[in-house]
Design a binder for these strands. Sequence first.
DNA 1: CAGTGGTCTAGACCACGGC
DNA 2: CCGTGGTCTAGACCACTGG
Lengths: 242, 242
Amino acid sequence: MQPLYHRIAEDMIERIKGGELKPGDMLPSESQLSAEYSTSKMTVRQGLSLLVRAGYLRSVPGKGNYVEHPRYDLLTMHFDEMDIVGDYPQGVKLLEATIVAPDPLVQDKLGLTEKDKVIVLKRLLYTETQLAAYDIKYMPYIKGKPLIEKEIQYIPFARMVAKHGELFSVKNEVTILAAAADQEVAPMLETSPGSPLLVIEQKLLSAEQKPIGWGKTYCLSDCMQLHAVSAQFIQDKKLLNL
Amino acid sequence: MQPLYHRIAEDMIERIKGGELKPGDMLPSESQLSAEYSTSKMTVRQGLSLLVRAGYLRSVPGKGNYVEHPRYDLLTMHFDEMDIVGDYPQGVKLLEATIVAPDPLVQDKLGLTEKDKVIVLKRLLYTETQLAAYDIKYMPYIKGKPLIEKEIQYIPFARMVAKHGELFSVKNEVTILAAAADQEVAPMLETSPGSPLLVIEQKLLSAEQKPIGWGKTYCLSDCMQLHAVSAQFIQDKKLLNL
DNA sequence: CAGTGGTCTAGACCACGGC
DNA sequence: CCGTGGTCTAGACCACTGG
């Protein structure tokens, strides 16, 4: 037996999806719904709050609860570099792990000067069957915090940076684009200059918006694609078990 | 003055981000927190529920509330075809809007037979300054539901399909990949075969998981990039105003 | 002003987990 | 068995919007 507040939420979804309530319409007031379901206002609100959080409703204080237009344009995606590798144990080949002075581009991306030091990681990522991506990452060097080789091999960059800087949470900003392989990257990927690559640029920020990591992953186009789904449906599963 | 439940949530976030509570740790019980804040259990729960929904906590019935590891790998992205065009009024050029029998690929993608009819849209999308993308969309033909030319020009495919089929919500599945321009697409984009493209494949499903739209957008690589941010931070803004 | 959503109380009973 | 979170009540008062 599902709780009453859950049933209320499902009923409302039904009224909305069935067309009885259209975007812009106002729901019955919370006190009316309390009466309809012979329950208290708090229970009604608990049900409606699910729909508000899932984006089906908007609550307007002093007015009412209104049906929202669904958002088709907000997508949820899963990504980290290790997705490429999957469970394949030998899928990461570390080419370089050094501490250097940042070049001007990296200085800019990480907000550093040429006197600072950055850790550079260069890696090749393999699927089970073939070479798939060339990955370069930069992070500010913190004295006395060595990186462990196993971590470099197996944990995603965002987690690595969080651990290295002892941060609880990290903001991950990702840019996705296509580009032709250039003279530097092509030989690494054993392909010819000009062949299409999926490039994923990652920028990591601390809670204070300070840059704490930056890098790019150059993926062979036939080995890598990203999948995204309307956020709405992620919410539905989580909140409503629909 | 912010409500008490909000203050409770922020206090907990502080305890977590400050390192006082680490992932895996159990929070004080709800009754303990009620006492700490001299409030009722319901108010405490209202505060904690924010953190549960934002992914900071997991509630385990019979045991307690536990601090979760933050997710770096869930990203939220904004995308529809009209993002490319923006507010530029002449940014869409309709090449073709016809009703045809679907070819085998489209039959497969939309779950149709060769006896069915599909609407095909082919469009060129321009930024303010230049040609940016070639877009092909397919949707099952529904008798007596004409498409209005202005809609074809200006509303995103997902919204168009929802309206055409009189559906409240539509599931949007997007695949992102890089590819080389082929013989068919290259001339449309006034580029040479082999040049890198960002390809965005869109599949639309009804609430019953029936395919109701499919298509691809071929974007010139220097005109288009996608941006995504850790979902965590979207939630933070919405739920906590941090 | 009356009606709305937003917050909050001080209890209650339940299902669950672990001892 | 007791302590935990999950549900729910029947009220209260507030801030807000509209007429």
